[in-house]
């Protein structure tokens, strides 16, 4: 038991550093993917055909691309094309680019739950496309897809560990460090699991809270 605790205290430097980076990746990834996801959703329901085509093309291509490949493209292929992105920004970008299509898909299904009559009524009142979407439709769409959205953010949290393979020292890199320091691998992995639990539990609490607060009464 003491040895288990010491695994954490002896290596606090790398644990704190790793999980702090994971937190940064998660927060930036959340904001980025929600923003880009909303933008994609806007494009998919917009009256502009080219925007619709681009958004659905983007969603179907990226949704079927492994995250590792997106990372590899940004880190290894981009420099060869003269595009130099630092490793941490590349990780933010990869996570955002990858997660946004899933957010978009969830939002589209959320939009489908909003009765068509509401949009028509809003247009009849003279609202523009943007006003209809952002004042009437999307707020309702968001609240009906809270559970899948939180699940996706949860999945993204775990996806942040891919960044360890691309020169970002986050929680996924801790195991390599501790193995090299000769620490017990089982204890190491248990601590990493506990660390991730610290992230997931608040996320679940948030989900419950939002579900209760935003419950759609029909």
């Amino acid at each position: 038991m003491l040895e288990f605790l010491h695994t954490l205290t002896r290596n606090w430097d790398i644990f704190s550093r790793g999980f702090f980076t994971t937190l940064k990746l998660f927060l930036v990834g959340t904001v980025g993917s929600l923003a880009v996801g909303t933008l994609l959703t806007t494009m998919r329901v917009s009256p502009v055909p080219i925007a619709r085509a681009f958004a659905s093309g983007y969603v179907s291509i990226i949704r079927n691309t492994p995250l590792t490949l997106i990372f590899a493209f940004l880190v290894f292929a981009a420099p060869k094309l003269g595009l130099d992105i630092a490793f941490e920004p590349a990780a933010y970008l990869a996570l955002t680019v990858y997660t946004a299509p899933f957010i978009c898909d969830a939002l589209i299904s959320g939009i489908n739950t909003v009765p068509v009559g509401q949009g028509e009524a809003a247009r009849a009142l003279g609202m523009t496309f943007g006003q209809v979407l952002y004042l009437i439709v999307l707020p309702q769409a968001f609240r009906s897809v809270v559970p899948p959205l939180i699940s996706m953010l949860n999945a993204m949290l775990k996806n942040t560990t891919v960044a360890a393979g691309f020169s970002v020292v986050e929680a996924g890199a801790i195991q390599a460090y501790l193995s090299e320091r000769g620490e017990n691998q089982v204890y190491t992995l248990l601590w990493i699991t506990l660390g991730f639990l610290c992230f997931v539990v608040p996320l679940i609490v948030l989900q419950r809270y939002l579900e209760r607060k935003w419950a759609v009464v029909r």
Partner: peptide, 18 residues
């Protein structure tokens, strides 16, 4: 968006070439 699409394609092409 048209330009973005063609950029994306150019990128993918270049990737394969690399």
């Amino acid at each position: 968006s048209c330009r973005i699409v063609s950029l994306a394609f150019a990128g993918a092409l270049a990737f394969t070439t690399v």
